[in-house]
Design a binder for these strands. Structure first.
Length: 474
DNA sequence: TGAAATGTTGGGGCG
DNA sequence: ACGCCCCAACATTTC
């Protein structure tokens, strides 16, 4: 049995990689990665610099790991829909295996590959998520549209298997035909893709992912139920990009958390729940692939979003005058990550305060988030906007000042990303425009010069949104 | 995984 | 001492 194991960027690991382990157990195994210009053409790669940096770093480590196990990762360039079938023939493999991508773009690719492979079996494993998207249904056979019932069904019906260990060794790659060798290329470094490496992006690769999870479970995980919301603290696991790229498997995260947090039931429930939210996002996308371009709730179609270029530029650049919103904008551009609480606040601000189409913000996040995941990002944006599945009601408008006071009471988060406000006292850190002149002077702040005044008044923006939404939604 | 407006209550100041 | 009013503090309703 000769198997081509196609790694596809959401499974960049050797531990708990069922297709790889099964192939190795069955005979000759050829690990493959394809640098598809759809992602790797420099003009495309430069659009998503943070994810690309993480990806190539993870890919390099994967190649090293596979080499240590006695095999070799074969890396080729070209469109995967053409290259994979061609390689499969040139290599004379009996089958091609990999993990299933359930996102629309992956489904379409795999449909074409299956067709082009023709008589060569293409076996796709479930495992991107804990539950197979689309499988869980309500009692009446319809897709879940509310999280809690989905989570209940998940708890009742989904058996999360134990993660498998990495193979102890892999069979060596057989001698490759000349035609295949000619296609081989090296794993790119960021510079090859026109990307300047950014030291603030989290380290890619399987080892770093495991280390992050372990550090979390040994430390802040115990009080995750409260710590996860505190924007200034490192209270979260920070493995979102690792789940996205599969440098750690979802069931490894689930299993380790379940075990390690056993003595902290509230924290454990909260953390596992977040993993189930990810499941829910994939499930929704499976049933409703149109959510990537349209609101989940039909009533929101044609919502009268505003064209507000000045507002948009302020939101993107972190100059809205609302410290939490501005801090999150700068965190995104600087380190490719935003604290979840800050994501909710800033998404709400763009859609509700500025009345800018949430899809524009969603796209911006997808560009710069290292963990940018179609399903999870879309669910988050639609939830915050109020047009999504189990979304918060449209009339709930976050007040960025109150949210800041509640979840960043000492202003640690804001000060980290807005050094120009560093010396402002806690009392005013989330509303510098209200600070007395003497306090501003003491802190070296000149409103409108060193830090902007709010681009829009909160009370006004809130009323404007409520009136607009009421008018459209009835 | 809200916030603001409105309603209610009860203690204390004050004539 | 009594009644009236004010207004926190808390509860409920509305968006």
């Amino acid at each position: 049995m000769r198997t081509l194991v196609w790694f596809r960027g959401k499974d960049l690991r050797v531990a708990d990689h069922a297709p790889l382990a099964d192939a190795a157990a069955a005979g000759e195994t050829i690990p493959l990665f394809v640098l598809d210009p759809y992602f790797f053409a420099p003009e495309r790669a430069r659009e998503i610099p943070h994810r690309m940096q993480y990806l190539v770093e993870s890919l390099a480590e994967l190649a090293r790991s596979i080499e240590k196990l006695g095999s070799r990762l074969v890396v080729v360039g070209g469109k995967s829909t053409e290259v994979v079938p061609a390689l499969a023939r040139e290599l004379g493999v009996d089958r091609v295996v990999g993990y299933r991508w359930t996102e629309p773009v992956g489904k379409e690719r795999d449909r074409r590959v299956t067709k082009a492979l023709a008589e060569i079996p293409f076996d796709l494993y479930d495992g991107e998520t804990l539950a197979t998207p689309g499988k869980l249904l309500t009692g009446s056979g319809t897709p879940f549209a509310v999280f809690t019932p989905f989570a209940n069904a998940f708890a009742k019906d989904v058996v999360v298997g134990a993660p498998r260990r990495a193979p102890r060794s892999l069979p060596p790659v057989p001698k490759l035909p000349r035609s295949v060798v000619a296609r081989e290329v090296a794993v790119p470094v960021p510079e090859d893709l026109g990307i300047t490496p950014n030291p603030r992006i989290v380290r890619g690769g399987e080892a770093a992912a495991r280390a992050r999870l372990r550090a979390f479970l040994r430390g802040p995980g115990a009080r995750y139920d409260v710590g996860r919301d505190l924007m200034g603290e490192a209270g979260t696991s920070r493995v979102s990009q690792d789940l996205k790229f599969g440098t750690i498997s979802a069931r490894a995260v689930f299993g380790h958390a379940k075990e390690a947090l056993a003595e902290h039931p509230k924290a454990r429930r909260a953390y596992l729940n977040e993993l189930v939210w990810r499941e829910f996002a994939y499930d929704v996308l499976e049933h409703r692939p149109d959510v990537l371009s349209e609101p989940f709730r039909p009533a929101w179609q044609g919502f009268p979003w505003r064209e507000d270029e000045a507002g948009w530029r302020a939101w993107v650049s972190g100059t809205t005058g609302y410290p939490v919103v501005d801090a999150s904008a700068r965190q995104l551009l600087t380190e490719g990550f935003v604290h979840n609480r800050a994501r909710m606040i800033t998404a709400s601000f763009l859609a509700k305060h500025l009345l800018v189409d949430f899809r524009r913000g969603e796209e911006h996040f997808m560009r710069f988030l290292t963990d940018g995941d179609w399903a999870a990002n879309d669910l988050g944006w639609q939830w915050s906007t109020g047009c999504g599945v189990d979304a918060q009601p449209w009339f709930r408008v976050f007040n960025p000042v109150l949210q800041g006071a509640k979840f960043d009471a000492r202003g640690a988060y804001v000060r980290r990303w807005l050094p120009e406000l560093a010396n402002l006292g806690d009392r005013w850190i989330h509303q510098p425009w209200e600070a007395p002149a003497a306090e501003l002077a003491r802190a070296g702040i000149v409103l409108g010069e060193t830090y902007p005044r709010p681009i829009v008044d909160h009370a006004f923006a809130r009323q404007r949104f409520l009136a607009t939404a009421k008018g459209h939604l009835g």
